[in-house]
Design a protein around this nucleic acid. Structure first.
Lengths: 144, 144
DNA sequence: CAATATTGGTTTAAAAATGCAACTAAAATA
DNA sequence: TATTTTAGTTGCATTTTTAAACCAATATTG
């Protein structure tokens, strides 16, 4: 990745971690159940050296854990930490945006459903704490 | 940006558009009210050639509009289209994740509040259509 | 148990993208 | 009219990415 953003902004700081072509795709694979290096590499199509670097970075950032699974060997499993799992809404949000805006209606390749009911999940929206829908003009950033 | 993802996945396709170091930061500036080239460049810190390229791409993608504001001149204003505005939840989601996970509690540089009340907005969450909270294990991707 | 295949990488070189500074033309301002 | 500002473009050095080859340890097969 290119030089880090230095701004004291949560968006800029987040982009320092997953603001690139591959990282969010790796995270997606974790949500789809991948855990091994090979899986991650094949499912995303990323080059092995980049995957290696990205995983190192994600482990450093506390987003991914690396555990030994080969009886004192060189076999490892990668998985999301709690911090990594908390990216779930971000991933869902990106999924939903792409699905709504990047395909003709009815041409979507997939949809997110609740496992137990098979029903589509709700559209993610920005709301007030008492449940009113907020459009972008109703929200501002308050600097602390 | 690097070579396009070819996967038929809404996440991969979205990353082809904003999966880089700068694009989401440019979008952030639009939500903060920027409209001119100079503003976007100064607030984000992006190099001018890159900003130029990114804006061209965003206009092509139908996310940003370029309008002439200088009485038949070379003065322009950029603004989000409806497609661009629909990135608001994605941006909010990234903001909230960064704010919760990347700073010690109480050290957040900013928070998102409702303009009219000054109260913090709700945390964005993944829910079923009837309003139940869904964790990542309760959701799956159904391919169509 | 020996031979083969798989995993989880590292290394290298070429291609592409980024960062930075210098330059420019038109328009706005003084 | 002179100066400044805007909205870029151009060129070059640096950094990243891509793709392929290579490797050691482990697991699987016969």
């Amino acid at each position: 990745m290119s030089r880090d953003h230095t701004q004291a902004c949560p968006v800029a700081r987040s982009l320092n971690i997953f603001g690139d072509h591959w990282t969010m795709l790796i995270i997606r694979e974790f949500f789809y159940g991948a855990s091994r290096f090979k899986q991650l590499q094949q499912e995303t199509g990323i080059a092995k050296n980049l995957l290696s670097e990205r995983l190192k970075m994600l482990v450093e950032q506390g987003i991914v854990e690396k555990t030994d699974v080969g009886e004192r060997g060189t076999r490892f499993a990668y998985s999301l930490t709690a911090k990594g799992e908390s990216l779930f809404p971000v991933l869902v949000c990106i999924f939903q945006w792409g699905n709504r805006e990047l395909y003709g209606s009815g041409n979507q390749p997939a949809e997110l459903v609740e496992k137990s009911t098979n029903l589509p999940i709700a559209k993610i929206q920005v709301m007030s704490r008492d449940g009113r829908l907020l459009d972008r003009n109703a929200v501002k950033t308050r600097f602390l």
